[in-house]
Amino acid sequence: MKASILDGLGKGDIAMNNIHKMIIHELMEIEWKVESFILHDMKITHCLGCFECWMKTPGICRFDDAGRKIAKSFIQSDLVIFLTPVTFGGYSSELKKALDRIICLDLPFFKRYNGEVHHKMRYKKYPGFMVAGILPEADPESERIFKTLVERNALNFFPPAHVSGFIYRYQSQEEIQKTINTLLGVTETITSITN
């Protein structure tokens, strides 16, 4: 089994660096392969909205950079983990830059789902999501928006299972570890669906 981590924490967010390490450690314990992307360290061209990844080179963005590698790793994973400071209730720009580049994983064509229009799947199998939002402290309104966003993403990127949760900057290592372990419970669901 394989997980990709899209780490959208800001440069210099050393306080939260350990979260990434904790997650890798836990995944190694259960013998998952991990591919990590520290997004602020990578040169990723932002999406130009040209739709060439649907029309000209179906399934691949015109830019051959880390954004393309991330899209590939995403679809080849069983679980994708997003780490991000909760930014006005949404994702950080670092994470968003990478996510805007994954629409090549869907088809341009439409299907209806629960009364809404969405895209059809390009691939047969998509990874599960685990999304961890970092906040200075509990913030019900931002958390509500963030959770809704994850649910909306789940409608468009077909994860077999998904989970989201929050880590607060004031929390102790033990508390953070507990949240991570709870969120990583999603690996069990994914493993049971896959087998």
Binding site: G90, S92, S93
Partner: peptide, 20 residues
């Protein structure tokens, strides 16, 4: 702005971060 992946495009998030 256009909706990108259910939220704001990278460019808009980045500009809001800068303004904030």
């Amino acid at each position: 702005f256009p909706l990108y992946v259910d939220s704001l495009p990278y460019l808009v998030v980045k500009s809001l971060e800068i303004i904030a």
